[in-house]
Design a protein around this nucleic acid. Structure first.
Lengths: 200, 200
DNA sequence: CCGTTCTGTTATCATTTGTCAACAGAATTT
DNA sequence: AAATTCTGTTGACAAATGATAACAGAACGG
């Protein structure tokens, strides 16, 4: 069950984890299952856990005054479900995170993650790499959002994360792109070129 | 000249820098002046330096096929001008960074920054804090971009970074917000409520 | 099995934003 | 001082997107 997490660590570091370190990690991360539509985090709470997704799919979103959901992240296997600001600063979150598929996650608290950071030397490198990775992705997405048309953003998404289109319904993809589901529907049917419209 | 950089370091760490460490930093960061409209980085280059802005203002932007500039970041004193992906991965950048005011910066190369990371223990903490800070800001901006109207984004900007409105012309603010200058002009004049339209 | 919800599409109309063009005052350059 | 560029505004029109509603098949739950 922890195998994918170990793999994930090793993917981001130059030195593989030792047996002892692996044991430490296995003893620290707690496994949990979340059913479809269950909340992992709700607006107003403090995000007490960071969750590594072993299997399943989740989404992170805010809700505006009109009750409309705005999805800021879609999450699948090997991604982390966490509101980092709330997790690090211990402030109430403005986001909700819930499961879209039945999901299996590995939980760690802030204090436990800090302990691991002390006990496992390569954790520092891992954290840095992951942060960098995250910063790159954010920068790209921001640039795409202000520079590209909705159509281009959709085809980018289709190329970069084709899984998303299979696993999340269109209205969630639309929300993630910052457009309505009707607009996405039209984009898909007009600009059939890049779209996997007819894929079954 | 390096004072603001030292202050900046101490702001992000729990332990102040020692005299020796301060010397090290002063010897590593190279001062440079850039005149208004000069490039610090051009599309296609590798971003060899990270630049701490001591005084002045800069902007980072991409240019699309039609030649339109899309500003992804506006930068002033105590901010870092760098395309992190290019700097870290040594890949060609897709961005341009240039000076909007005559600007004084402190430069560091990747290898020098890694040396400092070895020699100064609190640098690791500093890096982490800065990355976190950056991640929080990115998340917020992303959420704002997909959730809020252009009008709300503008008033948010006016509240969060009032300096920007004074120091950058409106067409840059507009580009930064992902709208045209005409739209921004109209927003400012209709929704006078939150706007500092009449401020001199 | 039936009713309900969910999902995606389409149509119509309203709103927002973009595009193009013209303009005027300010700032800059020569 | 004159010419040029920069900046911000405005108008008219076009294009993109949103809002609302209706619809139908799929998936789901009792």
């Amino acid at each position: 069950m922890h195998e994918s997490l170990i793999k994930h660590f090793n993917n981001y570091t130059s030195t593989p984890l030792t047996v002892r370190e692996i044991e430490l990690i296995k003893n620290t991360f707690v496994s949990k299952k979340i059913r479809k539509k269950q909340y992992f985090l709700q607006e107003g709470e403090v995000c007490k856990y960071a969750a590594f997704i072993v299997k399943g799919a989740m989404r992170q979103y805010s809700v505006d005054e009109k009750g409309v959901e705005h999805i800021v992240r879609l999450l699948i296997e090997n991604w982390w479900a966490v509101d980092r600001e709330s997790f690090v600063m211990l402030t109430p979150t403005v986001y909700n995170i819930d499961a879209w598929e039945d999901t299996e996650i590995l939980l760690v608290t802030k204090s436990d993650s800090l302990k691991l950071l002390d006990q496992i030397p390569v954790m520092a490198e891992w954290t840095r790499k992951l942060d960098e990775h995250h910063a790159f992705a954010s920068q790209k997405r921001l640039n795409a959002t202000i520079s590209f048309t909705a159509e281009k953003r959709y085809s980018d998404l289709a190329n970069t994360y084709p899984d998303f289109l299979q696993r999340f319904p269109q209205h969630m993809i639309a929300s993630f792109l910052g457009i309505t589901k009707e607009t996405l529907s039209r984009i898909r049917h007009s600009a059939g070129s890049g779209g996997q419209a007819a894929k079954k």
